[in-house]
């Protein structure tokens, strides 16, 4: 019984996480230049790197999200999502520490309030959820 509840919880978590990543990616694919601007605002990468990333990252989010939703290549998808969460988290934390007055850009150009604090917390939560899914996924 306990095992079934645990399995159900993991299923709910991975579908929710997958849907969130598909949503986040879908918001960006139509406006890659806006997302490029969001990446540039973090002042971490040279301009030449931001345009390819602005095209690649949203599709990576969507493919990983769909894999999580449909349970295909689960361990690989969860591993990539965890890596993305770590990269996003580091970028957010350095921007926060440098006092950059920017928006997260996590969901395209959708308006966000509250600065970078909440995106950092959200990313930590997503990382924890992804880690749990990765650990449960079969090798």
């Amino acid at each position: 019984m306990g095992h079934r509840i645990e399995a159900l919880m993991v299923l709910v978590l991975r579908v929710a996480l997958g849907a969130l990543f598909v949503y986040a990616g879908a918001l960006k694919i139509g406006h890659p230049l806006d997302f490029q601007q969001a990446i540039e605002n973090y002042r971490l990468l040279p301009k030449v790197a931001t345009l390819p990333l602005a095209f690649y990252l949203p599709w990576l989010e969507i493919v990983c999200g769909l894999a999580l939703i449909f349970g295909r290549s689960l361990r690989a998808a969860a591993g990539i999502v965890a890596a993305l969460c770590i990269v996003f988290l580091l970028a957010l934390i350095q921007a926060w520490m440098r006092g950059l007055d920017i928006q997260c850009g996590c969901f395209g150009s959708a308006p966000e309030t509250g600065g970078l604090f909440w995106p950092i917390l959200r990313d930590m939560l997503l990382l924890a959820v992804t880690g749990a899914i990765w650990l449960r996924a079969k090798k």
Binding site: L33, I62, C64, A76, G79
Partner: peptide, 28 residues
């Protein structure tokens, strides 16, 4: 590892197609 490469590759293909589409429509 192979699954991870497959996901990374599929995303790359889609990104390239998307870039081509945006370039063709003068959106870059």
């Amino acid at each position: 590892m192979r699954d991870a490469l497959r996901i990374l590759g599929l995303a790359l293909i889609l990104a390239v197609v998307s870039y081509g589409w945006h370039a063709r429509h003068g959106r870059i």
